[in-house]
Design a binder for these strands. Structure first.
Lengths: 365, 365
DNA sequence: CAGTATTTGTTCGTATGTATA
DNA sequence: ATATACATACGAACAAATACT
């Protein structure tokens, strides 16, 4: 189908198509040069030209005295680079993850190519394209706007076709089953909300990120906990915010609007510690005390969490371990094939750092 | 000198040497194939074999009907990958820098290959080797143990020979003049120490990192401030710690030893906010109040700084800007040649966030 | 602008060397 | 040890792009 004005180009195409179609599989011996000469009625030099090109590109390996062989799709010595795409690099969470990933991969001689999506579908696409263009062997990725249908799925599917190993972290796309490593957001959220319930709170507000899978998952845990306690979920106590409003500049301008629209609650579940800090600052301005007036729980347990108010109760997320786990799974897939790792979410264990941000208001249900 | 058993290999060598020696300069037209046939008494096929190899490697460019030309050392379309090597990824400082670097480079179509040295000379070497092996076009690097002579200088020099652009951040090696972007540690430290002096402090302790260039620079500023105030520097008030003791696990075990050996001071200059936090925790255990008993100033102004004690006074380092500045300089070097950017340190502007960690003890000198 | 010489690109044929099965 | 298969090398011819007159 392709323009093959030259004989050596058409022979290259013929071999490539044969490999793609499965006629020649990885490790197979290709027909000898002399055989191809006869078959196509061309000279050996021409055959050699074609084979040399393919060999240069790493598609085949020529062994003197033996023959030419189809290389594994990804010859070991070729790229040895793994892409890692994260959504934000604002804080130390990412740094910890990266630390873990780096530790595992570089000890195995892999390089890391980094991309930041800033939760932009377009930037995600750009990086995925780069993964394909530069022939990376694997990808660790934090999905962009992972709770919504993703238009870049086609690129992920192209990667799968090309046998590029993929591990998602923190989230994944519903319509793309894949290995992933997640924190156990639902259970963690259920337990954190449970702490508030146990302290007698009944009107518990929630503040979640809407366009990232972690938001809905944390919301789910919150809902489950309320349901278990036979407390109806009140729509007006749940605030949602979105990526557009999430970067540091816009955050404060919009968050107070969301938070101040919540009313009549004694406790709040915050999407993460950064949001909790913003809420705390807002409360300070309005002279609301934590936990005196409002009890608060949150996620991530960043170092700051110790210092917000009297210390806030936060779900601990083993970030470095998550990075290590993701990288380890990727390595296994690279070495033993994609099937070696279950293409399902793996939930990381968690723990909760209880601090003085919950006031017991008696009446234990 | 090299084993050139084959004619095409020796011709390749001859051309490479010619380019290296300056006989053929970039853009020059090489002798025609037929000329080389006659000159070396070999067939045109053999000449073509050699030329094809060089062309594949990007060293020369063949133009049909015209001739073969020496390529620029780094043909634009080749790698488009920039290495970035940092020492630690523990905290958000690095994340901010990376954010800035990423923003600039990816908008120009460059990819980022990340390495973490963990302040290990060996890991640094490994990454530098990777930069060379994978033909990266540039490098942004935070030097490893930058206050000491570095055994990897040879690799940096090889990069320079290969026209790989290099920008140092935070530090540089004394014996390798190079473009670099630094925070103005000395001036910042002088000003911070000055704040303590203005508040009447005379016995001011200092706690510095010894094996990173930033440590000695901050110490220098501290010394200059004291000298300006005609206060002698007392050896016993200065504590030094080293990378071995700097990772999170070892830190606390050793820091208290260093800190507790300091005695008879009313104020302390801390290497950075993480150290300040450790010092603060130590003080808490010993019932020492900041600023009641000891005044404290520090560097970096991380978000935590607001929350340590009543908030600590800290020198603000525009991390993201530093990343942007470094990346911008690198881009300029990549586009216009290394000479386009002064091979000297560029100091970033800074500001100081004054908080309630300094007690005025009267007697304004 | 046309024509010609130069230069690289493609293809053929052949011969010899060397590693592998 | 022999046959097979790839690696190097030579010689020749024509095509196509470019440079020069």
């Amino acid at each position: 189908m392709k323009s093959a004005d030259f004989k050596y180009e058409s022979l290259k195409q013929w071999i490539i198509e044969g490999i793609r179609a499965g006629t020649f599989r990885h490790g197979d011996k290709l027909p000898s040069e002399n055989f191809l000469c006869r078959k196509f009625g061309i000279s050996r030099q021409t055959v050699r030209h074609a084979m040399a090109d393919l060999s240069e590109g790493g598609l085949i390996k020529k062994v003197r005295g033996s023959g030419s062989y189809v290389q594994k799709q990804r010859p070991m010595g070729s790229s040895k680079t793994v892409g890692i795409l994260v959504s934000h690099v604002d804080d130390y969470l990412f740094a910890q993850i990266l630390n873990g990933v780096e530790e595992v991969l570089t000890s195995d001689g892999f390089g890391i190519d980094l991309g930041i999506s800033n939760n932009s579908i377009e930037l995600e696409r750009k990086f995925l394209q780069r993964v394909l263009d530069t022939n990376m062997v694997g990808l660790i990725v934090e999905g962009t706007r992972s709770s919504l249908p993703n238009p870049n799925i086609e690129l992920y599917e192209e990667m799968r076709r090309r046998d590029i190993s993929i591990v998602f972290i923190h989230n994944y796309y519903e319509n793309f089953p894949c290995a992933s490593v997640l924190m156990d957001d639902i259970a963690m959220s259920r337990e954190l909300t449970g702490l508030l319930l146990k302290a007698g709170h009944k009107r518990i507000a929630g503040l979640f990120k809407g366009d990232d899978l972690q938001g809905p998952r944390r919301y789910t845990g919150y809902v489950e906990a309320l349901r278990d306690a036979d407390i109806p979920v009140r729509e007006e106590l749940v605030g949602w915010f979105y990526s557009n409003y999430y970067d540091n500049i816009m955050l404060e301008m919009n968050l107070d609007h969301v938070v101040m629209n919540l009313a009549g609650y004694t406790a709040i579940v915050c999407y993460n510690d950064w949001i909790a800090e913003e809420v705390y600052k807002l409360y300070q301005q309005n002279n609301i005390k934590i936990p005196g007036d409002i009890s608060l729980v949150s996620f991530d347990d960043i170092p700051l969490a110790r210092y917000i108010a009297n210390g806030i109760t936060s779900g601990q997320h083993p970030h470095k371990l998550l990075g290590i786990e993701a990288a380890t799974r990727l390595l296994k897939m690279l070495r033993e094939g994609i099937a070696a790792v279950p293409q399902q979410p793996r939930l990381m264990p968690y723990s909760i750092s209880v601090r003085d941000s919950i006031k017991d208001i008696g009446e234990t249900r």
